[in-house]
Design a protein around this nucleic acid. Structure first.
Lengths: 221, 221
DNA sequence: TAATCCCTTACAGAAATCTGTAAGGGATTG
DNA sequence: CAATCCCTTACAGATTTCTGTAAGGGATTA
Protein backbone atom coordinates (compact mmCIF):
# COMPACT_ATOMS: atom_id res chain seq x y z
CA UNK A 1 0.00 0.00 0.00
CA UNK A 2 1.03 3.63 -0.36
CA UNK A 3 3.42 4.83 2.32
CA UNK A 4 3.08 8.61 1.90
CA UNK A 5 -0.17 10.35 1.11
CA UNK A 6 -0.92 14.05 0.82
CA UNK A 7 -4.44 15.36 1.24
CA UNK A 8 -5.65 18.79 0.09
CA UNK A 9 -9.14 19.67 1.30
CA UNK A 10 -10.27 22.95 2.77
CA UNK A 11 -13.26 21.92 4.84
CA UNK A 12 -11.91 20.75 8.12
CA UNK A 13 -14.62 18.25 8.91
CA UNK A 14 -14.28 16.60 5.52
CA UNK A 15 -10.53 16.73 5.79
CA UNK A 16 -10.48 15.02 9.16
CA UNK A 17 -13.07 12.55 7.98
CA UNK A 18 -10.84 11.43 5.15
CA UNK A 19 -7.77 11.20 7.32
CA UNK A 20 -9.60 9.19 9.90
CA UNK A 21 -10.98 6.81 7.32
CA UNK A 22 -7.52 6.21 5.89
CA UNK A 23 -6.02 5.69 9.32
CA UNK A 24 -8.64 3.20 10.31
CA UNK A 25 -8.82 1.28 7.07
CA UNK A 26 -5.37 1.37 5.54
CA UNK A 27 -1.83 1.07 6.77
CA UNK A 28 -0.21 4.30 5.67
CA UNK A 29 3.02 5.48 7.26
CA UNK A 30 2.56 9.16 6.56
CA UNK A 31 -0.73 10.92 5.99
CA UNK A 32 -0.35 14.67 5.66
CA UNK A 33 -3.33 16.96 5.29
CA UNK A 34 -3.42 20.59 4.23
CA UNK A 35 -6.21 23.14 4.08
CA UNK A 36 -4.59 25.33 1.43
CA UNK A 37 -3.33 24.50 -2.05
CA UNK A 38 -0.19 26.53 -1.57
CA UNK A 39 0.72 24.77 1.63
CA UNK A 40 0.02 21.43 0.03
CA UNK A 41 2.25 22.29 -2.89
CA UNK A 42 5.06 23.40 -0.60
CA UNK A 43 4.89 20.21 1.35
CA UNK A 44 4.88 18.18 -1.84
CA UNK A 45 7.86 20.09 -3.21
CA UNK A 46 9.99 19.81 -0.11
CA UNK A 47 9.39 16.08 0.09
CA UNK A 48 10.08 15.64 -3.61
CA UNK A 49 13.38 17.52 -3.54
CA UNK A 50 14.38 15.64 -0.44
CA UNK A 51 14.01 12.42 -2.42
CA UNK A 52 11.09 11.26 -0.27
CA UNK A 53 8.17 12.10 -2.53
CA UNK A 54 4.52 11.58 -1.73
CA UNK A 55 3.10 8.66 -3.64
CA UNK A 56 -0.52 9.79 -3.73
CA UNK A 57 -2.33 13.12 -3.73
CA UNK A 58 -5.97 13.26 -2.75
CA UNK A 59 -7.32 16.68 -3.63
CA UNK A 60 -10.56 18.58 -3.70
CA UNK A 61 -11.21 20.89 -6.65
CA UNK A 62 -12.91 23.90 -5.08
CA UNK A 63 -11.29 25.78 -2.22
CA UNK A 64 -12.88 28.64 -0.32
CA UNK A 65 -11.41 32.08 -0.52
CA UNK A 66 -9.65 33.35 2.53
CA UNK A 67 -7.81 36.31 3.98
CA UNK A 68 -4.50 34.58 3.29
CA UNK A 69 -2.73 35.43 0.06
CA UNK A 70 -2.98 32.48 -2.27
CA UNK A 71 -1.16 31.67 -5.44
CA UNK A 72 -2.85 28.37 -6.18
CA UNK A 73 -6.56 28.86 -5.69
CA UNK A 74 -8.09 25.64 -6.98
CA UNK A 75 -7.47 21.95 -7.09
CA UNK A 76 -6.70 22.17 -10.79
CA UNK A 77 -4.01 24.77 -10.12
CA UNK A 78 -2.55 22.49 -7.50
CA UNK A 79 -2.65 19.42 -9.71
CA UNK A 80 -1.07 21.26 -12.64
CA UNK A 81 1.71 22.55 -10.42
CA UNK A 82 2.39 19.12 -8.97
CA UNK A 83 2.22 17.29 -12.30
CA UNK A 84 4.72 19.82 -13.62
CA UNK A 85 7.23 18.52 -11.12
CA UNK A 86 6.36 14.86 -10.56
CA UNK A 87 4.89 12.72 -13.33
CA UNK A 88 4.77 9.60 -11.19
CA UNK A 89 2.65 10.71 -8.27
CA UNK A 90 -0.81 9.19 -8.29
CA UNK A 91 -3.70 11.63 -8.05
CA UNK A 92 -7.25 11.06 -6.89
CA UNK A 93 -9.69 13.95 -7.07
CA UNK A 94 -12.39 14.04 -4.41
CA UNK A 95 -14.97 16.63 -5.30
CA UNK A 96 -18.68 17.34 -5.45
CA UNK A 97 -18.51 18.18 -9.13
CA UNK A 98 -20.45 15.71 -11.27
CA UNK A 99 -19.97 17.17 -14.71
CA UNK A 100 -18.68 14.36 -16.95
CA UNK A 101 -16.95 16.72 -19.37
CA UNK A 102 -14.99 18.36 -16.62
CA UNK A 103 -14.09 15.03 -15.07
CA UNK A 104 -13.00 13.52 -18.35
CA UNK A 105 -10.79 16.51 -18.96
CA UNK A 106 -9.03 15.83 -15.67
CA UNK A 107 -8.21 12.31 -16.76
CA UNK A 108 -7.07 13.41 -20.21
CA UNK A 109 -5.20 16.62 -19.47
CA UNK A 110 -3.97 16.20 -15.92
CA UNK A 111 -3.53 12.43 -16.01
CA UNK A 112 -5.34 11.95 -12.76
CA UNK A 113 -5.80 8.34 -11.69
CA UNK A 114 -9.12 8.46 -9.89
CA UNK A 115 -12.21 10.54 -9.36
CA UNK A 116 -14.43 10.20 -6.32
CA UNK A 117 -17.68 12.08 -6.23
CA UNK A 118 -18.55 13.43 -2.77
CA UNK A 119 -21.74 12.00 -1.42
CA UNK A 120 -23.24 9.54 0.98
CA UNK A 121 -20.87 6.78 0.01
CA UNK A 122 -17.83 8.74 -0.97
CA UNK A 123 -15.58 7.62 1.84
CA UNK A 124 -16.08 4.00 0.89
CA UNK A 125 -15.52 4.89 -2.72
CA UNK A 126 -12.36 6.74 -1.86
CA UNK A 127 -10.98 3.72 -0.03
CA UNK A 128 -11.89 1.53 -2.97
CA UNK A 129 -10.35 4.04 -5.35
CA UNK A 130 -7.09 4.09 -3.44
CA UNK A 131 -6.85 0.32 -3.73
CA UNK A 132 -7.53 0.49 -7.44
CA UNK A 133 -5.08 3.28 -8.11
CA UNK A 134 -2.45 1.52 -6.03
CA UNK A 135 -2.76 -1.36 -8.45
CA UNK A 136 -2.29 0.94 -11.41
CA UNK A 137 -5.92 1.01 -12.43
CA UNK A 138 -8.12 4.05 -12.71
CA UNK A 139 -11.18 4.57 -10.57
CA UNK A 140 -14.34 6.59 -11.00
CA UNK A 141 -17.25 6.71 -8.58
CA UNK A 142 -19.68 4.14 -9.90
CA UNK A 143 -22.68 6.47 -9.92
CA UNK A 144 -20.95 8.59 -12.53
CA UNK A 145 -21.67 6.87 -15.80
CA UNK A 146 -18.77 8.26 -17.73
CA UNK A 147 -18.57 7.03 -21.26
CA UNK A 148 -14.90 7.75 -21.10
CA UNK A 149 -11.90 5.79 -22.17
CA UNK A 150 -12.08 3.31 -19.34
CA UNK A 151 -15.57 2.21 -20.11
CA UNK A 152 -18.08 1.65 -17.36
CA UNK A 153 -19.56 -1.79 -17.29
CA UNK A 154 -23.22 -2.24 -16.73
CA UNK A 155 -24.71 -5.17 -14.96
CA UNK A 156 -28.23 -6.15 -15.84
CA UNK A 157 -30.81 -7.47 -13.40
CA UNK A 158 -29.85 -11.03 -14.23
CA UNK A 159 -26.21 -10.53 -13.32
CA UNK A 160 -27.14 -8.74 -10.13
CA UNK A 161 -29.51 -11.50 -9.08
CA UNK A 162 -26.81 -14.10 -9.52
CA UNK A 163 -24.23 -12.13 -7.61
CA UNK A 164 -26.62 -11.35 -4.78
CA UNK A 165 -27.35 -15.03 -4.47
CA UNK A 166 -23.67 -15.86 -4.44
CA UNK A 167 -23.13 -13.19 -1.80
CA UNK A 168 -25.76 -14.92 0.28
CA UNK A 169 -23.90 -18.18 0.10
CA UNK A 170 -25.79 -20.05 -2.62
CA UNK A 171 -23.70 -22.26 -4.87
CA UNK A 172 -23.97 -21.96 -8.59
CA UNK A 173 -25.75 -25.28 -8.68
CA UNK A 174 -28.34 -23.97 -6.25
CA UNK A 175 -28.73 -20.79 -8.26
CA UNK A 176 -29.24 -22.82 -11.41
CA UNK A 177 -31.98 -24.82 -9.72
CA UNK A 178 -33.59 -21.68 -8.37
CA UNK A 179 -33.68 -20.10 -11.83
CA UNK A 180 -35.28 -23.20 -13.27
CA UNK A 181 -37.97 -23.13 -10.62
CA UNK A 182 -38.65 -19.49 -11.41
CA UNK A 183 -38.74 -20.28 -15.13
CA UNK A 184 -35.96 -17.79 -15.74
CA UNK A 185 -33.68 -18.52 -18.65
CA UNK A 186 -30.80 -18.98 -19.16
CA UNK A 187 -30.37 -21.16 -16.14
CA UNK A 188 -27.61 -23.70 -16.69
CA UNK A 189 -24.75 -23.87 -14.28
CA UNK A 190 -22.48 -23.45 -17.24
CA UNK A 191 -23.99 -20.16 -18.29
CA UNK A 192 -23.79 -18.85 -14.76
CA UNK A 193 -20.12 -19.81 -14.72
CA UNK A 194 -19.55 -17.86 -17.88
CA UNK A 195 -21.52 -14.82 -16.79
CA UNK A 196 -19.53 -14.55 -13.60
CA UNK A 197 -16.24 -15.13 -15.38
CA UNK A 198 -17.04 -12.32 -17.77
CA UNK A 199 -17.67 -10.03 -14.83
CA UNK A 200 -14.22 -10.90 -13.51
CA UNK A 201 -12.74 -9.33 -16.60
CA UNK A 202 -15.03 -6.35 -16.58
CA UNK A 203 -14.39 -5.44 -12.98
CA UNK A 204 -10.80 -6.59 -12.73
CA UNK A 205 -11.55 -9.26 -10.16
CA UNK A 206 -9.46 -12.36 -9.59
CA UNK A 207 -12.26 -14.61 -8.40
CA UNK A 208 -15.73 -14.54 -6.93
CA UNK A 209 -14.60 -13.45 -3.49
CA UNK A 210 -12.88 -10.48 -5.03
CA UNK A 211 -15.80 -9.61 -7.29
CA UNK A 212 -18.37 -9.71 -4.51
CA UNK A 213 -16.18 -7.59 -2.27
CA UNK A 214 -15.69 -4.97 -4.95
CA UNK A 215 -19.33 -4.72 -5.88
CA UNK A 216 -20.57 -4.46 -2.33
CA UNK A 217 -18.07 -1.73 -1.64
CA UNK A 218 -19.37 0.09 -4.69
CA UNK A 219 -22.90 -0.26 -3.40
CA UNK A 220 -24.02 -2.42 -6.31
CA UNK A 221 -25.05 -5.42 -4.27
CA UNK B 1 -38.24 -12.47 1.25
CA UNK B 2 -40.98 -10.77 3.22
CA UNK B 3 -44.04 -9.86 1.20
CA UNK B 4 -45.73 -7.37 3.54
CA UNK B 5 -43.81 -4.87 5.64
CA UNK B 6 -45.14 -2.14 7.90
CA UNK B 7 -43.00 0.84 8.81
CA UNK B 8 -43.65 3.19 11.74
CA UNK B 9 -41.42 6.27 11.73
CA UNK B 10 -42.48 9.83 12.38
CA UNK B 11 -39.78 11.80 10.58
CA UNK B 12 -40.83 11.95 6.98
CA UNK B 13 -37.39 12.15 5.51
CA UNK B 14 -36.22 9.13 7.43
CA UNK B 15 -39.45 7.35 6.68
CA UNK B 16 -39.13 7.91 2.96
CA UNK B 17 -35.47 7.02 3.09
CA UNK B 18 -36.26 3.64 4.53
CA UNK B 19 -39.04 2.97 2.08
CA UNK B 20 -36.86 3.90 -0.83
CA UNK B 21 -34.02 1.73 0.35
CA UNK B 22 -36.33 -1.26 0.68
CA UNK B 23 -37.85 -0.65 -2.72
CA UNK B 24 -34.51 -0.41 -4.40
CA UNK B 25 -32.79 -3.26 -2.63
CA UNK B 26 -35.44 -5.83 -1.86
CA UNK B 27 -38.42 -7.29 -3.63
CA UNK B 28 -41.30 -6.55 -1.31
CA UNK B 29 -44.86 -6.68 -2.58
CA UNK B 30 -46.35 -4.32 -0.02
CA UNK B 31 -44.47 -1.67 1.91
CA UNK B 32 -46.74 0.46 4.05
CA UNK B 33 -45.43 3.40 6.03
CA UNK B 34 -47.13 5.33 8.80
CA UNK B 35 -46.16 8.45 10.69
CA UNK B 36 -48.23 7.70 13.80
CA UNK B 37 -48.25 4.69 16.09
CA UNK B 38 -52.02 4.60 16.21
CA UNK B 39 -52.37 4.58 12.47
CA UNK B 40 -49.73 1.90 12.23
CA UNK B 41 -51.56 -0.23 14.75
CA UNK B 42 -54.85 0.19 12.95
CA UNK B 43 -53.34 -0.85 9.70
CA UNK B 44 -51.74 -3.84 11.33
CA UNK B 45 -54.97 -4.88 12.96
CA UNK B 46 -57.09 -4.59 9.87
CA UNK B 47 -54.64 -6.67 7.89
CA UNK B 48 -54.38 -9.23 10.67
CA UNK B 49 -58.11 -9.68 11.02
CA UNK B 50 -58.44 -9.90 7.29
CA UNK B 51 -56.08 -12.88 7.35
CA UNK B 52 -53.42 -11.00 5.43
CA UNK B 53 -51.06 -10.03 8.24
CA UNK B 54 -47.91 -8.02 7.88
CA UNK B 55 -44.84 -10.19 8.23
CA UNK B 56 -42.43 -7.54 9.47
CA UNK B 57 -42.72 -4.34 11.48
CA UNK B 58 -39.95 -1.78 11.33
CA UNK B 59 -40.51 0.77 14.05
CA UNK B 60 -38.83 3.74 15.63
CA UNK B 61 -39.05 4.14 19.40
CA UNK B 62 -39.50 7.85 19.90
CA UNK B 63 -42.33 9.73 18.20
CA UNK B 64 -42.84 13.46 18.33
CA UNK B 65 -45.86 14.88 20.04
CA UNK B 66 -48.51 16.35 17.83
CA UNK B 67 -51.83 18.10 17.82
CA UNK B 68 -53.54 14.83 17.00
CA UNK B 69 -54.93 12.81 19.86
CA UNK B 70 -52.77 9.76 20.34
CA UNK B 71 -53.31 6.60 22.30
CA UNK B 72 -50.03 4.92 21.48
CA UNK B 73 -47.30 7.50 21.93
CA UNK B 74 -44.11 5.48 21.61
CA UNK B 75 -42.64 2.60 19.71
CA UNK B 76 -42.79 0.45 22.82
CA UNK B 77 -46.50 1.10 23.13
CA UNK B 78 -46.93 0.13 19.53
CA UNK B 79 -44.85 -3.02 19.83
CA UNK B 80 -46.66 -4.13 22.98
CA UNK B 81 -50.02 -3.62 21.32
CA UNK B 82 -48.98 -5.53 18.23
CA UNK B 83 -47.32 -8.37 20.13
CA UNK B 84 -50.52 -8.69 22.13
CA UNK B 85 -52.32 -9.63 18.93
CA UNK B 86 -49.74 -11.34 16.73
CA UNK B 87 -46.92 -13.40 18.19
CA UNK B 88 -45.48 -14.32 14.82
CA UNK B 89 -44.82 -10.95 13.28
CA UNK B 90 -41.12 -10.12 13.06
CA UNK B 91 -40.08 -6.80 14.59
CA UNK B 92 -37.03 -4.70 13.89
CA UNK B 93 -36.52 -1.55 15.93
CA UNK B 94 -34.79 1.32 14.18
CA UNK B 95 -33.89 4.01 16.67
CA UNK B 96 -31.16 6.38 17.77
CA UNK B 97 -31.13 4.96 21.27
CA UNK B 98 -27.85 3.25 22.13
CA UNK B 99 -28.45 2.21 25.70
CA UNK B 100 -27.66 -1.52 25.92
CA UNK B 101 -29.94 -2.11 28.91
CA UNK B 102 -32.90 -0.65 27.11
CA UNK B 103 -32.12 -2.57 23.95
CA UNK B 104 -31.67 -5.85 25.76
CA UNK B 105 -35.01 -5.34 27.44
CA UNK B 106 -36.64 -5.05 24.04
CA UNK B 107 -35.28 -8.41 23.03
CA UNK B 108 -36.22 -10.04 26.31
CA UNK B 109 -39.61 -8.50 27.02
CA UNK B 110 -40.99 -7.65 23.62
CA UNK B 111 -39.34 -10.46 21.70
CA UNK B 112 -38.12 -8.14 19.00
CA UNK B 113 -35.97 -9.75 16.32
CA UNK B 114 -33.59 -6.99 15.39
CA UNK B 115 -32.24 -3.66 16.52
CA UNK B 116 -30.72 -1.14 14.14
CA UNK B 117 -29.04 1.91 15.56
CA UNK B 118 -29.61 5.06 13.49
CA UNK B 119 -26.40 6.49 12.14
CA UNK B 120 -24.25 6.87 9.10
CA UNK B 121 -24.61 3.27 8.11
CA UNK B 122 -28.01 2.46 9.45
CA UNK B 123 -29.74 1.93 6.13
CA UNK B 124 -27.23 -0.72 5.16
CA UNK B 125 -27.57 -2.27 8.56
CA UNK B 126 -31.32 -2.26 8.27
CA UNK B 127 -31.15 -4.09 4.96
CA UNK B 128 -28.74 -6.58 6.46
CA UNK B 129 -30.95 -6.94 9.50
CA UNK B 130 -34.01 -7.68 7.39
CA UNK B 131 -32.15 -10.48 5.65
CA UNK B 132 -31.06 -11.91 8.98
CA UNK B 133 -34.46 -11.69 10.58
CA UNK B 134 -36.04 -13.23 7.50
CA UNK B 135 -33.84 -16.24 8.10
CA UNK B 136 -34.96 -16.47 11.69
CA UNK B 137 -31.85 -14.99 13.19
CA UNK B 138 -31.60 -11.91 15.35
CA UNK B 139 -29.69 -8.83 14.32
CA UNK B 140 -28.08 -6.00 16.21
CA UNK B 141 -26.14 -3.12 14.69
CA UNK B 142 -22.53 -4.22 14.87
CA UNK B 143 -21.28 -1.06 16.57
CA UNK B 144 -23.41 -1.90 19.59
CA UNK B 145 -21.35 -4.35 21.57
CA UNK B 146 -24.17 -5.94 23.45
CA UNK B 147 -23.07 -8.67 25.80
CA UNK B 148 -26.51 -10.04 25.47
CA UNK B 149 -27.77 -13.53 24.79
CA UNK B 150 -26.77 -13.56 21.18
CA UNK B 151 -23.14 -12.83 21.86
CA UNK B 152 -21.17 -10.54 19.64
CA UNK B 153 -18.18 -12.13 18.05
CA UNK B 154 -14.95 -10.29 17.88
CA UNK B 155 -12.46 -10.71 15.10
CA UNK B 156 -8.82 -10.09 15.86
CA UNK B 157 -6.35 -8.48 13.51
CA UNK B 158 -5.27 -11.87 12.23
CA UNK B 159 -8.77 -12.87 11.19
CA UNK B 160 -9.34 -9.53 9.56
CA UNK B 161 -6.10 -9.74 7.61
CA UNK B 162 -7.05 -13.12 6.23
CA UNK B 163 -10.52 -12.04 5.25
CA UNK B 164 -9.30 -8.86 3.63
CA UNK B 165 -6.88 -10.91 1.57
CA UNK B 166 -9.64 -13.31 0.58
CA UNK B 167 -11.81 -10.34 -0.35
CA UNK B 168 -9.03 -9.16 -2.61
CA UNK B 169 -8.97 -12.44 -4.42
CA UNK B 170 -6.04 -14.26 -2.83
CA UNK B 171 -6.40 -18.01 -2.38
CA UNK B 172 -5.75 -19.56 0.97
CA UNK B 173 -2.57 -21.04 -0.40
CA UNK B 174 -1.37 -17.59 -1.40
CA UNK B 175 -2.28 -16.20 1.99
CA UNK B 176 -0.37 -18.99 3.68
CA UNK B 177 2.71 -18.17 1.62
CA UNK B 178 2.33 -14.48 2.34
CA UNK B 179 2.16 -15.08 6.08
CA UNK B 180 5.28 -17.21 5.95
CA UNK B 181 7.14 -14.47 4.14
CA UNK B 182 6.03 -11.99 6.78
CA UNK B 183 7.07 -14.39 9.54
CA UNK B 184 3.56 -14.35 10.93
CA UNK B 185 2.41 -17.48 12.65
CA UNK B 186 0.25 -19.53 12.44
CA UNK B 187 0.50 -19.71 8.71
CA UNK B 188 -0.52 -23.12 7.44
CA UNK B 189 -3.27 -23.42 4.88
CA UNK B 190 -4.96 -25.78 7.26
CA UNK B 191 -5.12 -23.27 10.09
CA UNK B 192 -6.48 -20.65 7.75
CA UNK B 193 -9.14 -23.11 6.68
CA UNK B 194 -10.14 -23.67 10.27
CA UNK B 195 -10.12 -20.00 11.21
CA UNK B 196 -12.43 -19.15 8.37
CA UNK B 197 -14.70 -22.10 9.07
CA UNK B 198 -15.04 -20.96 12.66
CA UNK B 199 -16.07 -17.53 11.44
CA UNK B 200 -18.80 -19.19 9.36
CA UNK B 201 -20.38 -20.42 12.57
CA UNK B 202 -19.89 -17.19 14.44
CA UNK B 203 -21.45 -15.02 11.77
CA UNK B 204 -23.96 -17.49 10.42
CA UNK B 205 -22.39 -17.63 6.97
CA UNK B 206 -22.74 -20.53 4.57
CA UNK B 207 -19.40 -20.10 2.84
CA UNK B 208 -16.69 -17.58 2.16
CA UNK B 209 -18.73 -15.61 -0.35
CA UNK B 210 -21.43 -15.18 2.22
CA UNK B 211 -19.04 -14.28 5.02
CA UNK B 212 -17.21 -11.66 2.99
CA UNK B 213 -20.46 -10.11 1.87
CA UNK B 214 -21.79 -9.90 5.40
CA UNK B 215 -18.67 -8.40 6.88
CA UNK B 216 -18.27 -5.78 4.21
CA UNK B 217 -21.88 -4.76 4.64
CA UNK B 218 -21.22 -4.42 8.35
CA UNK B 219 -18.21 -2.24 7.62
CA UNK B 220 -15.77 -4.69 9.15
CA UNK B 221 -13.68 -5.23 6.03
C1' DT C 1 4.71 -36.00 36.81
C1' DA C 2 0.50 -37.07 34.49
C1' DA C 3 -3.75 -35.64 32.56
C1' DT C 4 -6.03 -32.36 30.03
C1' DC C 5 -6.95 -28.76 26.90
C1' DC C 6 -6.14 -25.93 23.05
C1' DC C 7 -3.72 -24.58 19.00
C1' DT C 8 -1.20 -25.78 14.93
C1' DT C 9 -0.39 -28.65 11.20
C1' DA C 10 -0.73 -32.54 7.79
C1' DC C 11 -3.56 -35.10 5.11
C1' DA C 12 -7.54 -36.86 2.59
C1' DG C 13 -11.88 -36.90 0.30
C1' DA C 14 -16.08 -34.63 -1.31
C1' DA C 15 -17.85 -30.57 -3.22
C1' DA C 16 -17.46 -26.27 -5.61
C1' DT C 17 -15.05 -23.12 -8.53
C1' DC C 18 -12.72 -21.82 -12.67
C1' DT C 19 -11.41 -22.39 -17.42
C1' DG C 20 -11.46 -24.33 -21.83
C1' DT C 21 -13.54 -26.99 -25.81
C1' DA C 22 -17.29 -28.23 -28.48
C1' DA C 23 -22.02 -28.67 -30.18
C1' DG C 24 -26.60 -26.81 -31.20
C1' DG C 25 -29.97 -23.12 -32.04
C1' DG C 26 -31.72 -18.57 -33.02
C1' DA C 27 -30.95 -14.08 -35.08
C1' DT C 28 -28.68 -11.25 -38.43
C1' DT C 29 -26.54 -10.29 -42.76
C1' DG C 30 -25.09 -10.70 -47.41
C1' DC D 1 -30.36 -19.79 -48.81
C1' DA D 2 -25.76 -19.79 -46.74
C1' DA D 3 -22.51 -17.74 -43.80
C1' DT D 4 -21.82 -15.70 -39.65
C1' DC D 5 -22.29 -14.32 -35.01
C1' DC D 6 -23.80 -14.78 -30.44
C1' DC D 7 -25.91 -17.14 -26.70
C1' DT D 8 -26.86 -21.33 -24.29
C1' DT D 9 -25.57 -25.68 -22.76
C1' DA D 10 -22.85 -29.97 -21.81
C1' DC D 11 -18.78 -31.73 -20.42
C1' DA D 12 -14.08 -32.31 -18.69
C1' DG D 13 -9.98 -31.32 -16.09
C1' DA D 14 -7.31 -28.53 -12.90
C1' DT D 15 -7.60 -25.91 -8.94
C1' DT D 16 -9.68 -24.38 -4.75
C1' DT D 17 -12.76 -24.77 -1.00
C1' DC D 18 -14.75 -27.12 2.77
C1' DT D 19 -14.96 -30.61 6.27
C1' DG D 20 -13.35 -34.19 8.68
C1' DT D 21 -9.59 -37.11 11.25
C1' DA D 22 -5.38 -37.50 13.44
C1' DA D 23 -0.85 -36.36 15.32
C1' DG D 24 2.30 -33.33 17.86
C1' DG D 25 3.51 -29.56 21.01
C1' DG D 26 2.91 -26.04 24.47
C1' DA D 27 0.34 -24.38 28.46
C1' DT D 28 -2.45 -25.27 32.40
C1' DT D 29 -4.05 -27.97 36.17
C1' DA D 30 -4.46 -31.66 39.44
Amino acid sequence: MFKKILIAEDFQDTNKGIVHALEVNLQIDIIQEELYCDKAFNRFKVAFEKGEPYELLISDLTFKESHVDRRLTSGIDLIKAIRGVDKNIKIIVNSMIENPTEINALFKDQKINGYVCKGRNSLNELLEGIQEVYQNRTFVSPQLNLNSSNSVFEMDKYDIMILKDLAEGLTKKEISEKLKKLNISPNSESTIDKKVSKLFDEFGAKNTHHLIAKLIKQGKL
